[in-house]
Design a binder for these strands. Structure first.
Lengths: 226, 226
DNA sequence: GTCTATACGGCGATAGAC
DNA sequence: GTCTATCGCCGTATAGAC
């Protein structure tokens, strides 16, 4: 049974537990993650959030405003968590500085925090970021806006850990890592099909365990002075 | 000046040089590459191709039919070129089989063939594939349909080159390579901004030169029995 | 904050003339 | 193969009542 809402109607536990504005964000996040910006209409969002059509425009100004709010909401959390992990491994490493593996770990592990396995919100968010990252229309602008200040701190750490490395190789290495990471979290199910079900794209822990050594070896090969 | 077309109108050199059906494919490829499937309308396609609105539906049945035709057109060429490169390096290698580097090279180098630098059609195509690859809606289905038979032959080659490797690690390694590759060819301009202009995302030769050793080192680290 | 109603244009697809 | 014309639906956004 679909619950009724409206002026003067009883505020159910469900309606009070998650506020309408957040319900809109969650519903839109799930829809944008699957269909992309242009594949989603405000009507779809309103229906999924069980909220009136006009409400999303009221809260976020426009469809694009809603999209940006979704990207920003979790970017702030993710950036803080990553930078905290970076600082922690830098403190623990002391004078020599952290290893490549430790830096990559600080970059990747936060994606599995925040209850990735349990919280579909974060899973939707990473699917969305995968699409934004690979979009010629949005990728350059939005990834820069939401993630570059964090990414630059990681680039500094990589530079210190790989003294004398060709800077261009460092940036390409970071880019390859970003591509591998976002496709892995894009959750397209393609690896399941290619492997005839041997590998599950849902098993992010298995992917993470392999991504750290894979990427670290790439960085070393390309950037390490022997 | 916009040239007139129509029944009985003079067939200009331009109109004969590229047939209308191909003009539709080229125009739609460019638009889908930038805006994605849902970000493009049949009206935009018709205008860019300078053909009538009804013509795209006539030739391809529907918008989705046009989209699939675009993916198929160059997938056939790319798959053939990649498989020819794979067979060539296998023949040259003899009994021991090719190295990881040679296999990866056979996978990556064909993207730079077909006149990548000169032919914007191929550049658009790779931008489109990057988005499809990372789409939860289309990625699993379409990448499997258009690229898996080719990909499975490469997986076989990797298995032979890395005897005793954990199969799951092999598939994840392939997946990381695919993510790094498609983001690199997505042409979002993000690496330009992150590097303050030091690195150009247009310089695909520089990217290719680094992607082969980066990915090969990852494969070895993860899959090589010492 | 929320809802009703609606403006106004763009959408994919097709029927039928030529 | 190509073009004209059109159908019916859906898109975003907003004005104004409550």
């Amino acid at each position: 049974m679909q619950e009724k809402r409206g002026l003067g109607l009883p505020k159910t536990k469900e309606n009070r537990r998650v506020k309408r504005k957040d319900r809109i964000l969650d519903a839109a996040e799930a829809l944008f993650a699957r269909h992309g910006f242009d594949g989603v209409s405000m009507r779809m969002v309103a229906e999924k959030a069980e909220v009136d059509l006009a409400l999303a425009s009221y809260h976020f100004g426009s469809k694009r405003g809603l999209f940006d709010a979704i990207l920003l909401r979790r970017a702030e959390v993710l950036n803080e968590t990553r930078l905290a992990a970076l600082e922690k491994c830098q403190l623990e490493a002391g004078d020599g500085g952290p290893t490549i593996e430790a830096i990559i770990d600080a970059y990747l592990k936060p994606l599995l925090a925040h209850g990735y396995e349990e919280d579909e919100g974060w899973r939707h968010y990473f699917e969305l970021v995968a699409q934004v990252n690979n979009s010629p229309e949005f990728g350059g602008q939005l990834m820069t806006k939401y993630f570059d200040p964090m990414a630059r701190k990681f680039m500094d750490a990589f530079k210190k850990a790989l003294p004398g490395a060709d800077p261009e190789s460092l940036y390409w290495s970071y880019h390859f890592m970003s591509g591998a990471l976002t496709l892995t979290f894009a959750n397209t199910g393609r690896i399941d099909q290619l492997s005839d079900g041997l590998v599950s794209s849902k098993n992010m822990v298995a992917a993470y365990d392999r991504m750290v050594p894979f990427v670290a070896a790439g960085f070393r090969q390309l950037c390490e002075k022997e």
